[in-house]
């Protein structure tokens, strides 16, 4: 692992791993028996890892979700599927490189994958627009979902985006409308939908392919209404409070599970999906197969009813005693109109 891909909080682990390596080297050179000491050190490293990765702060989880070595949507798809045909284009305007999708065979089952795609090198990152889809991306995803509905193929959505692209052309082509349409269409799509947040789940850009019968988050991901940086810049008027903002937003997988906003957490190998990608692929594949097994047996009407009900139940509010149902006379409206004019309508 290149040194710039190591977070500060991982440094104690790397230090111990170095020491273990050195110890082995010395043992080899001198023909000494050091297995006992090495075993002790190995155990110490494991304990330290469990301690550090088990107690990551919310901001550290955000950092993990953005790790440059982390597997992206196409990595998962290619390693999970036996066959994969990537499909392109929204049939209206363009092919969005930040949104990918296609037909795949997974464990003998046909699946329609959709997902946001990030790039790894500078060139790829630009090509993928940093995983920020334009309206044509959401329309491409919808086209593929509609095709899946037509042929009774379940949809698996892999979410990983820092947000929908906030550009001038994106607005001209209706970024808001594209996401809004996906929300309503996904709520009534007559085929099972499974969503997994594999990296970043930023706001409407993530939700635009995020309505499903089951929604999961991987262990080191985040999902919220805004990124901690933007939240910090709006509420604290500075980019410096991002750690505080991450804490306040309660944006990790565990937080969202406790708030009943997701159905479960997909565990990651110790140290994150990028440390042992093969293990991460296996865990995601198992989750997909297990859930599709169950979802595809449910009657369609029940599936749709439960999907709507699941999202309808989300929310936290209280009901106060006063003002149950008011019938207003014209006079009282006039009074209210007059008094409400004094309000600051900023």
């Amino acid at each position: 692992m290149s040194p710039n891909n190591i977070f500060d909080f991982e440094k104690p682990i790397i230090e111990l791993e170095h020491r273990l390596e050195e110890m082995r080297k010395i043992a080899d050179e001198n023909g000494m028996e050091m297995e006992g000491a090495a075993e002790d050190l190995k155990k110490k490293i494991l304990d330290l890892k469990k301690n550090i990765y088990g107690n990551l702060s919310r901001w550290q989880r955000v950092q993990m979700s953005r790790h440059p070595d982390r597997p992206y949507a196409l990595d998962y798809i290619k390693h999970i599927s036996d066959e994969f045909i990537e499909l392109f284009g929204d049939r209206c305007y363009a092919d969005d490189k930040a949104m990918i999708g296609g037909l795949a065979r997974v464990g003998g089952r046909t699946v329609m994958f959709i997902g946001q795609q990030k790039g790894r090198t500078t060139k790829q990152r630009q090509y993928r627009n940093f995983g920020m889809p334009n309206p044509e991306g959401y329309r491409k995803a919808l086209r593929l979902m509609k095709m899946a509905e037509k042929f009774g193929i379940p949809v698996v959505s892999l979410i990983d985006t820092p947000g929908a692209y906030p550009g001038l052309e994106a607005e001209e082509r209706g970024q808001g409308e594209a996401i809004a349409r996906n929300l309503i269409e996904m709520a009534r799509l007559r085929t099972p939908i499974l969503c997994i947040i594999i990296g970043e789940g930023a706001s409407g850009g993530a939700l635009g392919i995020g309505i499903g019968d089951r929604v999961y988050m991987m262990e080191n991901t985040w999902y919220s209404v805004i990124s901690p940086e933007s939240c910090s810049s709006i509420l604290w008027r500075s980019w410096e409070n991002k750690e505080q903002a991450a804490e306040a937003l309660k944006l990790t997988a565990h937080d969202n599970f406790e708030l009943n906003l997701i159905d479960g957490i997909v565990p990651e190998p110790l140290g994150g999906a990028h440390r042992e990608p093969e293990a991460a692929y296996a865990l995601v594949k198992a989750r997909i197969l297990e859930d599709l097994e169950e979802l595809t047996t449910l009657p369609m009407e029940q599936l749709l009813r439960e999907r709507v009900q699941k999202f309808a139940n989300m929310g936290a509010y209280t009901e106060v005693e006063a003002a149950p149902i008011m019938v207003k006379t014209p006079e009282s409206v006039k009074e209210q109109t007059a008094s409400s004019q004094g309000r600051a309508q900023a």
Partner: peptide, 18 residues
């Protein structure tokens, strides 16, 4: 969406759409 309710606010988009 209202930031102070985090992902819950985001999910209101899904809820109303459904």
């Amino acid at each position: 969406a209202r930031m102070m309710e985090g992902a819950l606010s985001l999910m209101q988009m899904a809820k109303i759409s459904a």
